[in-house]
Amino acid sequence: MSGNGNAAATAEENSPKMRVIRVGTRKSQLARIQTDSVVATLKASYPGLQFEIIAMSTTGDKILDTALSKIGEKSLFTKELEHALEKNEVDLVVHSLKDLPTVLPPGFTIGAICKRENPHDAVVFHPKFVGKTLETLPEKSVVGTSSLRRAAQLQRKFPHLEFRSIRGNLNTRLRKLDEQQEFSAIILATAGLQRMGWHNRVGQILHPEECMYAVGQGALGVEVRAKDQDILDLVGVLHDPETLLRCIAERAFLRHLEGGCSVPVAVHTAMKDGQLYLTGGVWSLDGSDSIQETMQATIHVPAQHEDGPEDDPQLVGITARNIPRGPQLAAQNLGISLANLLLSKGAKNILDVARQLNDAH
C-alpha cells in the first residue's frame, strides 16, 4: 500500500501541473516587456503551470559599433537563445518575429505568432524639431536608422535628408537623439515604442507609400524545439490566425527572394473581405531603383483552434497545428507568387547589386 502511495506522490510531482516552463529572452527592456506579455497570456491559459524567465545577451546586443547589415552573420539576435533551447536550458524563446530568419536551424520551429501590433515605422524627432515631419525637416538634416530597408525607401522619398546608421537598443538610440546634436530624427518601429509606453515620442507614423515595413514587423514569434510536442501544444494558444497568415505570406515572399538583413526588402499586408493583399518591394541601397507589386488571394481566416493538420510540417519556419492547413498554404503560395513576379521584373539584379555594395563598404 505504502509503495503505491509513493508512486502516486511521484506521479503528482512529475505531472504537468508541477512543471516549471523556462522562457528565454534577450536582456533589453523591450525584450523583457514583450516576454512578460507572452508569459502573462500563458499564465492565464495555464494557471497550474509556473513560468521562469531567463534573460541573456546576444551577438546583436554586444556589437554596437557596426551596422547590422555589415556584421555579416545571420541570427544576430537569436543564436545564443537557440543555443540555450538546444541544450534544454529553456523550453521556449520569445523573439520579435522580424529577427527570426525565414529558414531556422534544424530542430527549431516557430510554435506561435502572437497578435500583431502596429507594424509601421515611426519617426521620433529631436526636441528642437518636435512638430515637424520628415518632409518639413531642414535641408541636409541627419536621420538615424539601423535599417537598409528604411534608408533606401526614405532616401527616395525625401532626397533633402541624409540617413546615417544608429545602433543600440531603444533606450540607447533615444538617448543619442536627445543628448547629442548629430541626429534631427530617428526611425523606429511603432510597436516597440508603444510597448515601452513611449507613445508621446511618436512624431509621425510612416504610411506604406512612404515606407513599407519589415517582414514580420510588429509581431512576436515564440520559438521552440520542433519535436517538443508538449510545448508546441502549450504555445499553440498564442497563435493569432490573421497575423499568422499575413506573416506566412510575408516570410514566403522574403524567403523566395532570398532577402535578408543586408538587402532592402519591404512588405505591406492587409486582410479585407476574405482577401489577403500582399505588397512587396525591393530597392537599391540608395533607393534610386525599385520594383513594387501587389497581389491578392482569397483566404478564409479560420477561428482559433479549428482542428489543424496533425502532421505539422513547417511552413517558412512556422508550425501551427491548430490552424487549418489550406489557408496557410494559400498564404505561402501568395508570397511565392509575388516573389516570382518581382524576380521576373529584375528584382534579383537589384538585390545582387545591393548585396555587393553593402559587402564592399
Results as ranks from 00 to 15, higher is better:
residue 37 S to L: 11
residue 37 S to Y: 05
residue 38 V to N: 04
residue 39 V to H: 06
residue 40 A to R: 07
residue 42 L to V: 07
residue 44 A to Q: 10
residue 45 S to M: 07
residue 46 Y to K: 10
residue 46 Y to H: 13
residue 46 Y to D: 11
residue 47 P to K: 15
residue 47 P to H: 10
residue 48 G to M: 07
residue 49 L to N: 03
residue 49 L to M: 09
residue 50 Q to F: 09
residue 52 E to F: 11
residue 54 I to A: 07
residue 55 A to F: 15
residue 55 A to E: 15
residue 57 S to M: 03
residue 57 S to L: 10
residue 58 T to W: 00
residue 59 T to K: 06
residue 60 G to W: 09
residue 60 G to D: 04
residue 61 D to R: 00
residue 61 D to F: 03
residue 61 D to N: 04
residue 61 D to S: 03
residue 62 K to R: 08
residue 62 K to N: 15
residue 63 I to T: 00
residue 63 I to C: 11
residue 63 I to M: 13
residue 63 I to H: 06
residue 66 T to K: 02
residue 66 T to S: 13
residue 66 T to E: 13
residue 67 A to T: 14
residue 68 L to C: 10
residue 69 S to M: 14
residue 69 S to W: 09
residue 69 S to N: 12
residue 70 K to V: 14
residue 70 K to R: 08
residue 71 I to A: 00
residue 72 G to Y: 11
residue 72 G to D: 07
residue 75 S to H: 07
residue 75 S to G: 12
residue 77 F to V: 01
residue 79 K to A: 10
residue 79 K to L: 08
residue 80 E to A: 11
residue 81 L to R: 01
residue 82 E to G: 04
residue 83 H to M: 13
residue 84 A to R: 06
residue 84 A to L: 06
residue 85 L to S: 02
residue 85 L to I: 07
residue 86 E to S: 12
residue 87 K to F: 08
residue 88 N to F: 12
residue 88 N to P: 07
residue 90 V to M: 09
residue 90 V to N: 04
residue 90 V to H: 06
residue 91 D to F: 00
residue 94 V to K: 03
residue 94 V to T: 06
residue 95 H to F: 13
residue 95 H to R: 02
residue 95 H to Q: 08
residue 96 S to P: 03
residue 96 S to I: 01
residue 96 S to H: 05
residue 97 L to R: 01
residue 97 L to T: 15
residue 97 L to C: 07
residue 99 D to L: 02
residue 101 P to S: 11
residue 103 V to E: 09
residue 103 V to A: 07
residue 104 L to N: 03
residue 105 P to L: 08
residue 105 P to R: 10
residue 105 P to Y: 03
residue 105 P to A: 11
residue 105 P to S: 09
residue 106 P to A: 11
residue 107 G to M: 13
residue 107 G to R: 09
residue 107 G to H: 08
residue 108 F to I: 14
residue 112 A to K: 00
residue 112 A to Q: 08
residue 113 I to H: 00
residue 113 I to K: 01
residue 115 K to C: 08
residue 117 E to F: 12
residue 117 E to N: 05
residue 117 E to T: 06
residue 118 N to W: 10
residue 118 N to T: 14
residue 120 H to G: 09
residue 121 D to V: 02
residue 123 V to S: 08
residue 125 F to T: 04
residue 127 P to L: 14
residue 127 P to G: 07
residue 127 P to R: 13
residue 127 P to H: 05
residue 128 K to V: 07
residue 129 F to G: 08
residue 130 V to I: 13
residue 131 G to L: 08
residue 131 G to C: 07
residue 131 G to D: 10
residue 133 T to F: 05
residue 133 T to W: 09
residue 134 L to K: 01
residue 134 L to D: 03
residue 134 L to R: 03
residue 137 L to F: 07
residue 137 L to E: 03
residue 138 P to H: 09
residue 138 P to M: 12
residue 140 K to L: 11
residue 140 K to S: 13
residue 141 S to A: 13
residue 141 S to W: 05
residue 141 S to V: 09
residue 142 V to N: 11
residue 143 V to Y: 06
residue 144 G to I: 03
residue 144 G to C: 08
residue 145 T to H: 04
residue 146 S to D: 05
residue 148 L to E: 05
residue 150 R to G: 04
residue 150 R to H: 05
residue 152 A to F: 04
residue 152 A to Q: 04
residue 154 L to H: 09
residue 156 R to S: 13
residue 156 R to Y: 05
residue 157 K to W: 05
residue 159 P to F: 07
residue 160 H to S: 10
residue 160 H to M: 15
residue 161 L to F: 07
residue 161 L to M: 12
residue 161 L to Y: 11
residue 161 L to K: 09
residue 162 E to P: 00
residue 163 F to S: 08
residue 163 F to I: 13
residue 164 R to S: 11
residue 165 S to F: 07
residue 165 S to R: 08
residue 165 S to Q: 13
residue 166 I to F: 13
residue 166 I to Y: 07
residue 166 I to A: 09
residue 167 R to D: 05
residue 169 N to S: 12
residue 169 N to C: 05
residue 170 L to V: 11
residue 173 R to P: 01
residue 174 L to W: 06
residue 175 R to W: 10
residue 175 R to N: 11
residue 175 R to E: 06
residue 175 R to L: 09
residue 176 K to S: 10
residue 177 L to A: 05
residue 177 L to N: 07
residue 179 E to Q: 12
residue 179 E to T: 10
residue 180 Q to R: 13
residue 180 Q to A: 14
residue 181 Q to H: 09
residue 182 E to A: 13
residue 186 I to T: 14
residue 187 I to K: 01
residue 188 L to I: 03
residue 188 L to R: 02
residue 192 G to A: 06
residue 192 G to M: 05
residue 193 L to Q: 06
residue 193 L to K: 00
residue 194 Q to Y: 05
residue 194 Q to C: 03
residue 195 R to K: 03
residue 197 G to L: 04
residue 197 G to S: 12
residue 198 W to F: 11
residue 198 W to H: 11
residue 198 W to T: 06
residue 199 H to K: 14
residue 200 N to G: 09
residue 200 N to C: 12
residue 202 V to G: 10
residue 202 V to L: 11
residue 203 G to I: 03
residue 204 Q to K: 06
residue 204 Q to E: 05
residue 205 I to W: 00
residue 206 L to Y: 02
residue 207 H to E: 14
residue 207 H to W: 14
residue 209 E to Q: 15
residue 212 M to F: 15
residue 213 Y to H: 14
residue 214 A to L: 03
residue 215 V to P: 07
residue 216 G to P: 00
residue 216 G to W: 02
residue 216 G to V: 00
residue 217 Q to M: 01
residue 217 Q to S: 09
residue 218 G to S: 01
residue 219 A to F: 00
residue 219 A to V: 13
residue 220 L to A: 14
residue 223 E to A: 03
residue 226 A to E: 15
residue 227 K to Y: 15
residue 227 K to T: 07
residue 227 K to I: 06
residue 229 Q to H: 11
residue 229 Q to M: 12
residue 230 D to V: 12
residue 230 D to T: 00
residue 232 L to M: 11
residue 232 L to P: 06
residue 232 L to R: 04
residue 234 L to E: 01
residue 234 L to T: 06
residue 237 V to M: 08
residue 237 V to Q: 04
residue 237 V to S: 11
residue 239 H to A: 13
residue 242 E to H: 15
residue 243 T to A: 04
residue 243 T to Y: 00
residue 244 L to M: 08
residue 244 L to S: 12
residue 245 L to W: 10
residue 247 C to Y: 11
residue 248 I to A: 03
residue 249 A to M: 03
residue 251 R to L: 01
residue 252 A to Y: 02
residue 253 F to W: 04
residue 253 F to L: 10
residue 254 L to R: 04
residue 254 L to A: 02
residue 256 H to P: 05
residue 257 L to M: 12
residue 258 E to T: 01
residue 258 E to P: 06
residue 258 E to N: 02
residue 259 G to T: 13
residue 259 G to V: 04
residue 259 G to F: 12
residue 259 G to A: 11
residue 261 C to K: 00
residue 261 C to R: 04
residue 262 S to C: 04
residue 265 V to F: 00
residue 265 V to H: 00
residue 265 V to S: 02
residue 265 V to R: 01
residue 267 V to R: 01
residue 268 H to C: 07
residue 268 H to F: 13
residue 269 T to N: 07
residue 269 T to L: 03
residue 269 T to P: 01
residue 270 A to Q: 13
residue 270 A to I: 07
residue 270 A to M: 15
residue 270 A to Y: 06
residue 271 M to G: 13
residue 271 M to P: 02
residue 272 K to N: 15
residue 276 L to F: 04
residue 276 L to M: 15
residue 276 L to D: 03
residue 276 L to K: 01
residue 276 L to Q: 05
residue 279 T to C: 03
residue 279 T to N: 14
residue 279 T to G: 10
residue 279 T to K: 04
residue 280 G to K: 09
residue 280 G to M: 00
residue 280 G to D: 04
residue 280 G to R: 02
residue 282 V to A: 10
residue 282 V to H: 05
residue 284 S to C: 11
residue 285 L to E: 04
residue 285 L to H: 08
residue 285 L to W: 08
residue 286 D to F: 07
residue 286 D to Y: 04
residue 287 G to H: 05
residue 287 G to E: 01
residue 287 G to Q: 00
residue 288 S to W: 14
residue 288 S to P: 12
residue 288 S to A: 13
residue 289 D to I: 15
residue 290 S to A: 01
residue 290 S to M: 15
residue 291 I to K: 13
residue 291 I to E: 13
residue 291 I to N: 09
residue 292 Q to E: 15
residue 293 E to I: 09
residue 294 T to E: 01
residue 294 T to L: 08
residue 294 T to G: 14
residue 294 T to R: 10
residue 294 T to S: 11
residue 295 M to V: 14
residue 295 M to H: 03
residue 297 A to E: 05
residue 299 I to K: 05
residue 299 I to M: 15
residue 300 H to S: 08
residue 300 H to N: 13
residue 300 H to P: 10
residue 301 V to C: 08
residue 302 P to T: 14
residue 303 A to Y: 06
residue 303 A to S: 10
residue 305 H to T: 00
residue 306 E to P: 07
residue 310 E to A: 13
residue 312 D to V: 06
residue 312 D to K: 02
residue 313 P to F: 02
residue 314 Q to L: 13
residue 314 Q to A: 04
residue 314 Q to N: 14
residue 314 Q to F: 13
residue 316 V to L: 12
residue 316 V to D: 10
residue 317 G to H: 02
residue 318 I to T: 07
residue 319 T to P: 04
residue 321 R to A: 12
residue 321 R to Q: 06
residue 322 N to M: 10
residue 326 G to W: 10
residue 327 P to N: 02
residue 329 L to R: 15
residue 331 A to C: 13
residue 331 A to R: 01
residue 332 Q to Y: 14
residue 335 G to W: 03
residue 335 G to P: 01
residue 335 G to A: 03
residue 335 G to R: 01
residue 336 I to A: 08
residue 336 I to W: 13
residue 341 L to Y: 07
residue 342 L to D: 02
residue 343 L to K: 05
residue 344 S to D: 15
residue 347 A to Q: 14
residue 349 N to Y: 07
residue 349 N to T: 12
residue 349 N to L: 13
residue 350 I to S: 04
residue 350 I to P: 00
residue 350 I to Q: 04
residue 351 L to P: 10
residue 353 V to C: 03
residue 353 V to G: 07
residue 355 R to W: 15
residue 358 N to S: 15
residue 359 D to S: 03
residue 359 D to Y: 13
